[in-house]
Simulated scan of single mutants.
Amino acid sequence: MADGECAAPALMQITVVLSRAPRQVSECTVQLPPGSTLADALQAAGPLAAQREGMVCGIWGRVLPETTVLKDQDRVELYRELKVDPKVARRERFARQGARATGLFARQRPGGKSGY
């Protein structure tokens, strides 16, 4: 490099992922300057993240505020709202199947109580 020239900062590669419905995943890769935030990545993703009302965002499975500074190779994810609480779904599934037909309790000793 000649005197007085500065090297341009290397761009970070960020992957933006959105799943609007089960088994439907949209993904795009954007390049951003160092120091960019989660909000910058969503804006750079353009139409992919344009309709994100009611969606929460995060990085690698952790919900984080949009002011979070990104690192190279981060995966920005948009999470849709859950329709059913996982705990409630499990309780309902357990009630439907009965105690004797579920996972650990399926092969219990004869005459034993559920959960033992």
Rank of each mutant, 00 (worst) to 15 (best):
P47R: 11
G115Q: 08
M12P: 03
A49I: 05
R90W: 13
L70T: 02
A45T: 00
L32F: 03
F94P: 02
A21L: 13
A101Y: 09
G61A: 08
E53T: 15
M55D: 07
S26P: 00
D3S: 07
A101E: 13
V88C: 06
A99C: 09
E92Y: 10
A99K: 14
L11I: 01
L38A: 06
L78A: 05
V76G: 00
D72E: 14
I14F: 03
V56M: 04
Q73T: 10
P34I: 02
E5D: 10
S114K: 14
V76S: 03
V63W: 01
D3N: 10
D40P: 02
D3G: 04
A49Y: 04
G46W: 05
S36A: 13
T15K: 08
T29P: 05
R107F: 14
C6K: 12
V76K: 03
K71I: 01
V76P: 01
R109L: 12
L11M: 15
S114I: 13
V56K: 11
A8F: 01
A8Q: 10
A95C: 09
G112W: 14
P47L: 12
L42H: 07
V30R: 01
G4Q: 13
L64A: 10
R107T: 09
V69S: 12
M1P: 06
V88G: 07
T15I: 08
T29E: 14
E92I: 14
R80S: 08
L78G: 00
Q13M: 08
G54C: 11
C28L: 11
L11S: 11
V63N: 10
R20V: 14
D3T: 07
W60E: 07
R90E: 07
D72Y: 03
K113D: 06
V84I: 15
E5M: 14
P47Q: 15
R75I: 05
P86H: 05
P34E: 12
P22N: 12
L48E: 01
P86T: 06
V30H: 03
E53M: 14
D72N: 12
M55T: 13
R96K: 11
I59K: 01
E27R: 10
A21H: 06
R23G: 03
R93C: 09
K71R: 13
A106K: 10
Q108D: 00
G111V: 11
F94I: 11
G58A: 04
K71T: 06
P33H: 09
G4S: 08
A44D: 08
F105Y: 06
M55I: 12
G103K: 07
A101T: 13
A7I: 07
Q97A: 15
G58W: 03
L104Y: 03
L42C: 04
D85T: 06
E81T: 15
A49D: 02
A39D: 03
E77A: 08
T102C: 15
Y116N: 00
Q51M: 09
M55P: 00
F94D: 03
A50V: 13
C6F: 07
L82W: 02
R100C: 11
T102K: 12
G98H: 05
R52H: 10
P33F: 04
A44I: 04
L64M: 11
F105P: 05
C28N: 08
I14Y: 00
A50K: 11
Q108Y: 04
A95W: 10
S26N: 09
G4K: 12
M1D: 00
R107Q: 12
L70H: 00
K83M: 14
A21Y: 03
A39W: 01
R100F: 08
Q24P: 03
E5P: 05
L38Y: 00
R107M: 04
E66P: 05
T68F: 02
Q73L: 10
